[in-house]
Design a protein around this nucleic acid. Sequence first.
DNA 1: AACAGAAATGTGACCGCTCACACGAACGTG
DNA 2: CACGTTCGTGTGAGCGGTCACATTTCTGTT
Lengths: 333, 333
Amino acid sequence: MVRSRITIYDVASYAGVSYQTVSRVINQSKRVKAETREKVEAAIKELDYSPSRLAQSMVTQKTRTIGLVVADITNPFFFEVARGVQDTALAQGYNVFVCNTDDNPQGEQDVLTLLASQEVDGVILSTASSTDEELLAFAENYKPLVVINRDIDHPKASLVNVDICKGAKLAVEHLIDRGHTHIAMLSHEGHLPEHVRRVLGYRETLEAHGITPNDEWLVLAPPNLMGGYEATQELLRKHPEITAIFTYNDLMAIGAMRGCHDMGVKVPQDCAIMGFDDIKFSAMTQPSLSSISFDKYVVGQKAMQRLFEMFDEPDTTFAPIPLDVKLVIREST
Amino acid sequence: MVRSRITIYDVASYAGVSYQTVSRVINQSKRVKAETREKVEAAIKELDYSPSRLAQSMVTQKTRTIGLVVADITNPFFFEVARGVQDTALAQGYNVFVCNTDDNPQGEQDVLTLLASQEVDGVILSTASSTDEELLAFAENYKPLVVINRDIDHPKASLVNVDICKGAKLAVEHLIDRGHTHIAMLSHEGHLPEHVRRVLGYRETLEAHGITPNDEWLVLAPPNLMGGYEATQELLRKHPEITAIFTYNDLMAIGAMRGCHDMGVKVPQDCAIMGFDDIKFSAMTQPSLSSISFDKYVVGQKAMQRLFEMFDEPDTTFAPIPLDVKLVIREST
DNA sequence: AACAGAAATGTGACCGCTCACACGAACGTG
DNA sequence: CACGTTCGTGTGAGCGGTCACATTTCTGTT
């Protein structure tokens, strides 16, 4: 039975009060007599009334909806973050639009303007494809913005930053500890190596240990299983001297391990593999994957909490939220 | 600069027409003189106006938003489906709320009522935790509903069904072909085996080949990596006679392979492992995983397309959309 | 008993848009 | 040139709420 919507007026006349009183009950205003409140609550229950969020949003100009922009929800890193965001949002009655940009700068702009027109209350962004300028423009003109793993400087944008440099350092030092000196790296083809903190950490750590980074050993590929697989095969064919590979993320690392296997290169004996992100699969691969671990769920959680803080205090500028990483040593190194 | 919202009235007075004319231009009504339309379009561009979806939804009672209910977006199966849904929705200007139920029936009910109050235009559901009755009640009282991989019978609910029975049959027959007769199965602890089509297919196929299913060999566990890992170890400890395992999904299978490995059981020599879903990881594991494959992205795409059809023709009852599966043989069997 | 002040409730306007309708101008027709 | 049609545009109302303010009722004080 598709009954036409029950409005606040229906409840009001059923309870014998004015619509405004019903509104007060809904909004938990103190200014309602206990007795009246009960009457209204009974009416609400009786009529199975629930207020239209649309109408509420219309007048309050708050939608209780936020946008989450990620490169690709298909990547286990992002969906763990997404869960953290969603769960935290839901607990406060907020909903989340998840948008994929596929690491495409134009897509990212489209998605941001779409979100703006959707009238979300805020945006959490975890991508690196749009330029800082575009992002700054968005923060300036539109809604509160929380940015994950990216350094931009704007009073209306907040940061949540995993200590990626430290992660890269731990990873490379671990490989050096294991006696490796010919350490290659697989990075994300979508980004300039100069802007990728993993690459910077990789280079710095090598240099700190007296090893000169060899640019031939830095390969750019799509940051997924197939990208890691193919890049590894090409790399090892060209540079058989390599004995260790550090990758942009675990997806690439898992592809890399399979790439080694298919070439008859044994992991870790012939070539050690080191990932980044510590996704759940990494403990289950064969050999299991050493990686840099941090709590992705917490990343999402903190980002959402920060967004809530920004709603409450719109004019405050918040300090970045740092998140620590740790090295997880498994069989692949 | 947070300028207060530009409304249709601003555009109207800027262009020197009435607000209704602007509305007509926005809604691509034919009833506007070309000349006027240009004036209005220029004004829109000039003022950088975009209509408030909120206000539009308010009056049209359509939000251009749909809800996607999945058990856990963290499962690769679901997020590939989710991508299919999202991409298809976005192409038509629709947004998607993704909700996780964590396979918790109460959570599912909560999510459904939340979505109803959110005033989504429709719902796509791919979970099995709520009862058929609850789902029917939802379809009856609320919005168009597309259900994935589940048989419910209601004129207002549409189905997209992967041929899971066939998948289970192909899987088990393949194991039998390989000479196995002691074939165990790992299923989803959240559902009664009698309702799981994979289990039905498993039992039927065994019987069809003269093998009596042994209930001791059917283990229920959480449908994830760890669930597969632990269940496998327990199973093989109790029943070392088992030489093949068919799992509810690839996540469990990957956990199972690792479980075998850690017990010194070689895959596939000592024990073959057969998955279901063919997620991307399965080609990259070591050994790579045999599985039942179907296009998860297309599942999402078809579900969304069907929902659009339901919007267009609210009173039509649509036939279920079938999707075929195929066997992918890799190294684990 | 009279009055101020707080507490409880009611009324008008409006959020930004679309719908149904009204209205005048332009058009062809006999 | 009076007529009905079509076309182009404008007006009133209302979607379902909340806000600011007005109004009434209940307190407490002297």
